[in-house]
């Protein structure tokens, strides 16, 4: 027996999901971060973040169409993490690293938190 593994399939699907997000197609939730609004797909959010997984597996909360995050969350940090969820690319800037890491801790994105720790260590002279 043979099996054909399409090695680009996961990234092709993610690319299409990101295109759907940019065109606001089938996005089903608005995330509010300090008055900034971000449209997204619940399934993508919960696949990437422990916090969103907990929210959207809760039968009382899963139908919410808007979620307000803690006002301490930095919108720029959230922008970078949302972009990461839909592209696999994490843009780490020294000026924003603490905002990104604290947002990743809040969103329970443990592997991103570890990566931020390593980035901070490697930048430390």
């Amino acid at each position: 027996d043979s099996c054909i593994q399409f090695t680009r399939h996961a990234s092709d699907v993610l690319l299409n999901l990101n295109r759907l997000r940019s065109r606001d197609i089938l996005t089903d939730v608005t995330i509010l971060v300090n008055r900034q609004q971000f449209r997204a797909h619940k399934t993508v959010l919960m696949a990437c973040s422990g916090l969103f997984y907990t929210i959207f597996t809760d039968s009382l909360k899963c139908n919410l169409n808007a979620i307000s995050l803690d006002p301490k969350v930095d919108p720029e940090g959230f922008t970078i993490l949302l972009e990461f969820m839909y592209t696999s690319r994490l843009t780490l800037k020294e000026s924003l690293i603490m905002a990104i890491m604290n947002t990743a801790i809040y969103l329970q994105m443990d592997h991103v938190v570890d990566t931020c720790h390593r980035f901070i260590k490697s930048s430390d002279p």
Binding site: D1, S2, C3, Q5, F6, D12, L15, N16, R19
Partner: peptide
Amino acid sequence: YEGVNTIKEMGRSIHEIPRQE
């Protein structure tokens, strides 16, 4: 896929959704 010969296909796997129509 133990016991299965896996052939790697490197090309695009699905259609590409346009950025904007």
